[in-house]
Design a binder for these strands. Sequence first.
DNA 1: GTTAGCATGTAAGGAGTTACATGATTTT
DNA 2: AAAATCATGTAACTCCTTACATGCTAAC
Lengths: 200, 200
Amino acid sequence: MTRRGAALEMAVLGLLHDAPMHGYELRKQLIVLLGWGRVLSYGTLYPALKELVAGGFLDADPAPGSTGRNRIVYALTAAGKERFRELVDETGPSSWDDDNFGVHFAFFARADSQTRVRILEGRRSRLEERLERFRTSLVRSRERRDAYTLELQRHGLESAEREVRWLTELIDTERAGAAPGSSTRQAATTHTSTTTKETT
Amino acid sequence: MTRRGAALEMAVLGLLHDAPMHGYELRKQLIVLLGWGRVLSYGTLYPALKELVAGGFLDADPAPGSTGRNRIVYALTAAGKERFRELVDETGPSSWDDDNFGVHFAFFARADSQTRVRILEGRRSRLEERLERFRTSLVRSRERRDAYTLELQRHGLESAEREVRWLTELIDTERAGAAPGSSTRQAATTHTSTTTKETT
DNA sequence: GTTAGCATGTAAGGAGTTACATGATTTT
DNA sequence: AAAATCATGTAACTCCTTACATGCTAAC
C-alpha cells in the first residue's frame, strides 16, 4: 500500500471509468487531462497500473481486439468504481492540494454541487493563507531588493490574486446552480483558428 | 557530484553572496525569495550545504559571534563566487526550466542585459511550445468534454497566455534598456492596504 | 520551571524521471 | 527493407519530504 500518488490514481480511475484503454493511450489522455505540460513517463505509469491491478481496482486483459497485438487493456472493476466514487466525494485537505485540486476539478461533473463548493472553498482559503503570509513577509523585508526581485514578487502576487478571483467566480456560479462558462465566455476555443502549424 | 538541485544550489550561493548566514536563517530567506509557498525542509537544506562545503564553495564557521551558541555560519569562498558567476551567466535550457527560471530571474540584477534577454526569450519559447501542443490536443479531442473540463483547460490556457505576455513586456523593457516596473506600475505594494484580516 | 522557538542534523521512504531493453506494427 | 511509432516494461537514480533525535536559549 505504497500510497502511489493520489492524483495519478484518481486520474487513471476516472479516465478508465469512461472507457477501457491500454497504457500507451492512457498516458496521452492523462497528459492532456490536466495542464500537465510535463511528460508523465512510463516508469511512473506502468508500475502504478500494476499496483491498481494488484489492489483489485483494475482488470488487465490482453487485448483480443483489432489486430491481436500485445496490448493490455485496463478496465475498472466494481471495487475500482467504488474507489473512484470515494475519491470524488472526498472534501478534505487532500482535495485542495496543489497536486490534487486539478484532478478533482477535472472530474467535478461526477461530484454533487455541495462537494464542488466545499472543494472550491477549501482551495481558495489555502491560497488566501499563502497570499497573506507572502504579503506579510514582503512588508517585513523590503529593504535591499532590486527591481527584478520586486517584479518577480509582484507577478507572483498578481497571479495568486487572479487565481483567488477565478475561484470566487466559480463558487458564485456554483451557488447560483449553473455550470461554469455559461454566461459571458465562449469556453476554451476562441483562439485555435490561427496558428495551426503541425511541426511534429 | 550528485547534482543536488541546481535551483537550490544557485539560490543558496546567491543569498550567501549578499551576506553570510546560518542554515536556519537561510531557509527562511530561501522560502521568501521565490514564490515557494512550499516549505523547504531541513532534510533538503542541510545535506545540500554539506555538499557545497565539501565541494569547496562554502566555508562553515562555528559562529563565534553573539551568544556563542552552536550555530554554523556559512560564507562563500572564492570558488563559490566563481561558481555563482557561472550559474548567473548560464543561458542554456536549464536556465529556463520551470524549476530554475525563477531563481535566475531573482538574481537578474547580477547578470548583464544580453543574458537576461536570452533567458527571457528561452523561457518564452518554451511556454509557447507547450501552449501550441496544448491547443492542438484540445482541437483534436473536443468530443465528450463536460463544462468543468473545458473550464479547467480554458483557465490553463489563459494563464499560460498571460505568462507569455508578461515575458514579452519584460523583453521589450529590457531591450529599451530599462529596469522592470519603472513605467506604469507601482511595483508590489498596491494591495496590502485592504484585506488585513488576521484569521490565524 | 516549562513552553515556545532557535538550531542542527539523520534515516527512511515517496514520487517521480531518465535511460535502457525489447519487440510488434505501420508507414515510406 | 528501413524507419517511425506503437507498446510494455525494469533499474538506477534524483530530489525532496516526514519523522525522528538532540540540545540550547528566550519568554512567560
